[in-house]
Design a protein around this nucleic acid. Structure first.
Length: 680
RNA sequence: GCCGCCUUAGCUCAGUCGGUAGAGCGUCUCACUCGUAAUGAGAAGGUCAUCAGUUCGAUUCUGAUAGGCGGCUCCA
C-alpha cells in the first residue's frame, strides 16, 4: 500500500508485488479459504491460469489472488455480466440461440440469433431483468462435462454445438470464442439461485470455460447495456448475422460514471461535430459519400499542416514530385494492385472506343482508373531515365490525392474517406543503405509527429499473410528482420501484428495516443522488394553492373484528412497557435477603440499573424464569449486604460488574463508562440 | 456490402393519433454600447431528404432510393 494514489493498472503493479502475494499450496484448499479475509479478491490465478474462487485447488500449486479492479479481474467481471445478459435474454425469449459472449475493452457483448432484432426498448427491459438477476446474488457453478454430455445438454443451441466441434482450435472459431471453449476440458456454468439452501435451483446454464465471479451481486455496481448491432457469426460475412448486444461493466458506480463521461468527452471532440461547428469542412451530398470539401478555416489549418511538413521534407532530403489522378489500366496491372484491390477501386472509365455505324468496334478503346495509390507513378518517375548508385537514396515525395471506393458502411468522416491525400514518399535505395535509411525515416517520422503535438507512441510490426502476398520467402524474411531490428532499436514498444502486411511487403506502423488516451494508427513504413521487381527498376552500381533498388513506402500523416481529424480531436478544436485558423481576435471594449486595435492587428499581420478585429455590433461581453467559443488562442482586448498606456490586454483560452502589456511586447509574444509552435 | 436506427429552418431539436409547422442559436435590420462567456426589439428563412403508393387530403401511413449514425466484414 505504498502508493495509494496511483490507480491499479497493469503497469502500475510491479511484478514483485504479485509474487510476494503468491502462495504455494501445501494441502487441498480453495480461493475462498485462502482469501477469506480479502473481499476484493474475485478469482485466483493458479499456476498462471484463472480459476473460480470456490474451485478446489490441490496441493503443490502456486496461487495468486486476483482483485476485481485489475485487468484479469475486470475481464472476469465483464464476462460474468455477459452471462447475466444472456440469461436475461433467454428469460424473455427462450427461443434466442446463444452465440458467444466475451469481455472486450471497457465492457462485453453477447451474440444472439433471434427472430427480430433488439430495439432500444428491449435493451431497457433487459437492463431491468439483469438488475433483478444481479440482486438475487446468483452463484456461477462450474461443472466439468464430457463432449457427449455437452452435446446432449446443449442440443438446442446450434452455435454452441458448433463451438464444441471446434474445441481445441479456438483460433479458428473466431475472436472471443475462446471464452466459451478452451483447449482443456469442457465446462458448463450454471447460474444457481439460493445456492447452498434447500430451495436452490439452477435457473440458467451456458457452455463456458470460465471463470466467473463468486456472485452476480458483484456486477451490480456498474453495469449498463449500451447498444445492439448485427455481427456475423464467427466473424465471417459468409455466415449468418447474429444480433449483438454491447454493454459496459465496472467494479463501482464511480468508475462507470467516469467511463460514461469519457464517452461523452469523445463525442464532444468528434471531428465531424467540431468540423461543422467550427466551419472547417463538410461532406456535401451533392458531391458524394466520403468526399470532403475544406472551408476557408479548415483550409488555413490544412495549409499550415502541409506547409510545415513540406519544409521539413525539403530539409530531410526529399524531392517533390506530382502525378495525375487517373491512369490507364495497365499501370495497376503491372503493380499488381488490380489483382488485389480491384474491389476497392472506383470502376474504370472506358475511353477512346470507336464504333462503326453497325455497332461493331472499329477501335477498342481502353480503361482508365482513378488512382488508389501513388507508388506506381513514382516508379515511373524513377524509371524515366537511367539511375546511378550516386543518386541513391532517392526520396520522392508527393501530396498525392487518391480515391478508393470504400464500402458504404465503412465511410466515416475524414478518418475513412473515399478521396484523400497521402503525404506519400517512396525511397529508392541499395540493399546496403536500407537499414540506415529505415532508421533515419523512423526518426524523421517520430520527430515530425512530435512537432504536431503527439507524444506517446508505440510501434506495430505487420508481417506476411501467406494467403495475401507475393514474393519469395527469403525476401520477406530479410525485409521483416530488418524492420524488426530498426523498430527495436528505436526503444519504443513493439507489438506484433501477424498477417497484417500488405501484399508486397511488411510494415512498421506508428501508433499514437491522443489527449484522451485513444490510440490511432498514424504513420506507416513499408519495405518492398516486390514492386521494384514488377517494374523492373534498376540502377547502375559502382562496378558498372545493373542492380535492383529496394523501395521504402512511407506516409507520415497517412492521409492528411485523417491526420487533420486526429489533431482536431486531440486538441478538441483548440489548436496550438501555429495551426489555429484565427490566431488573434482583437476585441475593443467599445467601438471607440476599433481603430487602436485595427492598428495592432495591422502590425500583427505584417508579421504573418492571422489576426482580426471584432467589428460586430455585439456588446463587449458577447464578443469575449464569441472569441472563447471560436477557441482563438489569443484574445487581445483594448479599452481606455490600455490606450493610455500604449498597451493591450491578453485573455487566454483558460480564461486567465494579463492586462496592460505594451503592444510591442504583445506582438513579440504572439509571434514567438507561433514560431515555436507551442500550445497556449 | 450486411444488420438495425435516423433524416422537420444554416445548426441543435420540438411537433402533427392524416387537415401543408414551432423554439433556441445563427443570419439580416434598428436602437443600445467603456473592461473579460449571452443588450433589447423586429424581420427573413422550411414543396417536413427524394420518388412512388394508399387516401377526399400525406411532413405524418406503406414501399423504394439517396444520405447520415451505430456495429459487423473490409482497410493497399
Amino acid at each position: 500500500m505504498s502508493d495509494v494514489a496511483s490507480p491499479p493498472s497493469p503497469t502500475a503493479l510491479p511484478s514483485a508485488d504479485t509474487t510476494t502475494e503468491a502462495t504455494k499450496t501445501t494441502a487441498t484448499t480453495s480461493g475462498v479459504e485462502l482469501y477469506a479475509e480479502r473481499r476484493d479478491v474475485v478469482v485466483v490465478r493458479v499456476d498462471g491460469e484463472l480459476w473460480d474462487l470456490d474451485r478446489e485447488i490441490p496441493a503443490g500449486h502456486v496461487v495468486e489472488p486476483v482483485t476485481i479492479g485489475e485487468p484479469d479481474g475486470l475481464a472476469v467481471l465483464r464476462h460474468s455480466a455477459a452471462h447475466v445478459l444472456a440469461q436475461a435474454v433467454q428469460q424473455v425469449n427462450p427461443d434466442a440461440k446463444l452465440g458467444i459472449g466475451p469481455p472486450v475493452t471497457d465492457g462485453f457483448y453477447y451474440d444472439f440469433d433471434v427472430e427480430t432484432p433488439f430495439t432500444p426498448e428491449d435493451l431497457k427491459a433487459l437492463d431491468k431483468i439483469m438488475g433483478r438477476i444481479i440482486k438475487e446474488g446468483q452463484t456461477f457453478r462450474r461443472r466439468v462435462v464430457t463432449e457427449d454430455e455437452a452435446r446432449a445438454e446443449l442440443a438446442g443451441e446450434p452455435y454452441k454445438l458448433e463451438l464444441i466441434g471446434l474445441k481445441g482450435s479456438s483460433a479458428e472459431a473466431g475472436e472471443g470464442a475462446d471464452v466459451e471453449v478452451g483447449a482443456g476440458e469442457l465446462t458448463i456454468y450454471e447460474n444457481v439461485r439460493g445456492a447452498g439452501r434447500e430451495s436452490e435451483t439452477v435457473v440458467w446454464k451456458d457452455l463456458c470455460r470460465g471463470p466467473h465471479l463468486p456472485s452476480t451481486r458483484l456486477i451490480g455496481n456498474g453495469v449498463q447495456l449500451q447498444r445492439s448491432a448485427a455481427a456475423y457469426w464467427r466473424g465471417s460475412e459468409k455466415n449468418p448475422m447474429l444480433q449483438r448486444v454491447y454493454g459496459t461493466a465496472w467494479p463501482s458506480k464511480d468508475e462507470l460514471k467516469a467511463y460514461l463521461e469519457r464517452l461523452a468527452e469523445a463525442e464532444r471532440r468528434d471531428h465531424r461535430r467540431l468540423g461543422s461547428e467550427m466551419d472547417l469542412f463538410s461532406f456535401p451530398d451533392e458531391i458524394g459519400s466520403g468526399l470532403a470539401v475544406f472551408h476557408p478555416k479548415g483550409g488555413v489549418i490544412r495549409n499550415a499542416m502541409e506547409e510545415y511538413s513540406r519544409q521539413k521534407h525539403i530539409e530531410g532530403g526529399y524531392e517533390f514530385v506530382y502525378s495525375p489522378h487517373i491512369t490507364k489500366e495497365k499501370l495497376y496491372q503491372v503493380s499488381g494492385h488490380l489483382d488485389w484491390y480491384a474491389e476497392g477501386m472506383y470502376p474504370p472509365m472506358h475511353l477512346d472506343e470507336e464504333l462503326d455505324d453497325d455497332g461493331t468496334v472499329r477501335k477498342p478503346g481502353q480503361n482508365y482508373y482513378l488512382k488508389p495509390m501513388n507508388c506506381p507513378m513514382h516508379n515511373l518517375i524513377f524509371d524515366a531515365r537511367g539511375r546511378s548508385y550516386r543518386e541513391l537514396p532517392l526520396r520522392l515525395f508527393e501530396f498525392g490525392t487518391v480515391y478508393r471506393y470504400e464500402k458504404s458502411g465503412v465511410v466515416h468522416g475524414l478518418t475513412r474517406a473515399r478521396g484523400f491525400t497521402q503525404d506519400d514518399a517512396h525511397i529508392y535505395c541499395t540493399r546496403e543503405q536500407m537499414k540506415d535509411e529505415l532508421t533515419g525515416t523512423l526518426n524523421f517520422v517520430l520527430d515530425l509527429l512530435k512537432d504536431y503535438g503527439l507524444e506517446d507512441f508505440y510501434l506495430e510490426l505487420s508481417t506476411r499473410d501467406p494467403e495475401k502476398s507475393v514474393g519469395s520467402d527469403e525476401a520477406w524474411d530479410e525485409a521483416t528482420r530488418t524492420l524488426e531490428e530498426v523498430a527495436t532499436a528505436s526503444g519504443l514498444d513493439l507489438v506484433p501484428d501477424p498477417e497484417g502486411a500488405a501484399f508486397y511487403g511488411p510494415k512498421i506502423s506508428v501508433q499514437a495516443k491522443d489527449a484522451i488516451g485513444r490510440t490511432w494508427q498514424m504513420s506507416t513504413i513499408q519495405l518492398d522488394f516486390n514492386l521494384p521487381e514488377k517494374f523492373d527498376l534498376q540502377y547502375t552500381a559502382d562496378d558498372g553492373s545493373r542492380q535492383r533498388p529496394v523501395m521504402i513506402h512511407r506516409a507520415l500523416f497517412g492521409s492528411i484528412e485523417r491526420f487533420f481529424a486526429v489533431l482536431l480531436e486531440h486538441y478538441a478544436g483548440a489548436f496550438p497557435a501555429w495551426l489555429a485558423p484565427v490566431q488573434v481576435k482583437a476585441v475593443p471594449v467599445a467601438d471607440a477603440f476599433d481603430d487602436y486595435l485595427a492598428d495592432v492587428v495591422t502590425r500583427l499581420k505584417a508579421q504573418g499573424i492571422r489576426a482580426e478585429v471584432d467589428y460586430s455590433d455585439d456588446r463587449f461581453g458577447k464578443k469575449i464569449r464569441n472569441a472563447a467559443k471560436e477557441k482563438v488562442p489569443f484574445t487581445l482586448i483594448a479599452g481606455g486604460e490600455d490606450v493610455e498606456a500604449g498597451a493591450v490586454s491578453f485573455r487566454f483560452r483558460d480564461g486567465t488574463q494579463e492586462n496592460g502589456v505594451p503592444v510591442a511586447d504583445a506582438i513579440e509574444r504572439i509571434v514567438g508562440a507561433v514560431r515555436d509552435r507551442v500550445q497556449v
